[in-house]
Design a protein around this nucleic acid. Sequence first.
DNA 1: ACTTTACCGGGACTGGTGGTCTCGTCAAAT
DNA 2: ATTTGACGAGACCACCAGTCCCGGTAAAGT
Lengths: 195, 195
Amino acid sequence: MSDGPRRPHTGRRRNDAAQAAILDATFRLLSAPGTEAVTIDAIAAEAGVGRQTIYRWWPSKGAVVADALARHAQAVVPGRDTGSFTGDLAAFFTDSFAGLESEVLADRLRQIVAEAQHDEHVARVLADFTAVRRAALRALLERGRTAGELAADADLDMLVDMAYGVLYYRLLVRHAPLDEKAARSLTAELTRSAG
Amino acid sequence: MSDGPRRPHTGRRRNDAAQAAILDATFRLLSAPGTEAVTIDAIAAEAGVGRQTIYRWWPSKGAVVADALARHAQAVVPGRDTGSFTGDLAAFFTDSFAGLESEVLADRLRQIVAEAQHDEHVARVLADFTAVRRAALRALLERGRTAGELAADADLDMLVDMAYGVLYYRLLVRHAPLDEKAARSLTAELTRSAG
DNA sequence: ACTTTACCGGGACTGGTGGTCTCGTCAAAT
DNA sequence: ATTTGACGAGACCACCAGTCCCGGTAAAGT
């Protein structure tokens, strides 16, 4: 029932370089245009590593993919200062949509959402990924509400979900584009409640 | 280059009962709570049919699943008359969300969205499924706009996507519930543009 | 009635994939 | 020097989509 190791560690240590190589290889494969499905074999070969080494670090393929994605999902939350709340909001959406203009990236996000539906590790990464972005948009909306550009009683969490909902809905169902026009229209509808 | 068959059909005909049994069995498996993944083997066994018979009617497993779903996806587009536009809208969302209260149904829709990302047949069914619902909501919003309850220059397609976006976004990422409160808040934010 | 055609259920088979097991090797700590 | 455990490599298993083939049978033409 002790938390720590019972005795000092002996034996060869796990190689951090191997872990890094696996993550890099996974992300490289995920970013490669031609790759249909990223397999464990492919990751191992690309990283120059045995399959077992992958499973020594992660419990499942989904976990590796999720981890590889998480490393690169940190930054890239849009945020610009255009001088006006409406301008900032439009820029936020334009940037967010533009990030998915590349079919490769859009496909990856589709793949992640799909995989998250039956892999809890990927689901966790997706949850974190989206939470960061929701928080960023919410902060932006809060500034707008403070400035009186949104109704005082606006449900910011709902507005955030309405905005990102459009992104994910169109990404996954593909019935309408996520272009500049969509960003402008979304901004217009969200800020209509100016009050 | 002739369109029709070159000669009169001979030989035993395909058995419509087998097709129906396969579709029924597939839907039954899709609806079964315990079923993780619906396999071709399981469908064949449940329908009392050979695997080849399935592939005689459909080109892929996804096509079978899609077809089975399509048969049952017709009805159930919400639509009530509560006397007011806001009331109708709230009822529409409440009904839509309530349809996903059952974890079985919600899971199935998640599964369909996921499978649609790598199976064009399922994608087609999902596209049709969602299009019917978008049209219904759009008609409702149009009535509201005509009645002056929405801005004259409102982008109804965007409003529709914002509403259904919330549903799919929350369904797939699971960061917030699709409950009565959400339906009310969504209604409030959408109708804020009254004018 | 007889033949031909093609669907039927069933089962063997292929190919690909996630994940485990084993082996000989090698590095780190005792 | 010995022990421990990670390493690359590859055999192996389980599962599944999809194909192939079989003996049987129903429907159409002759």
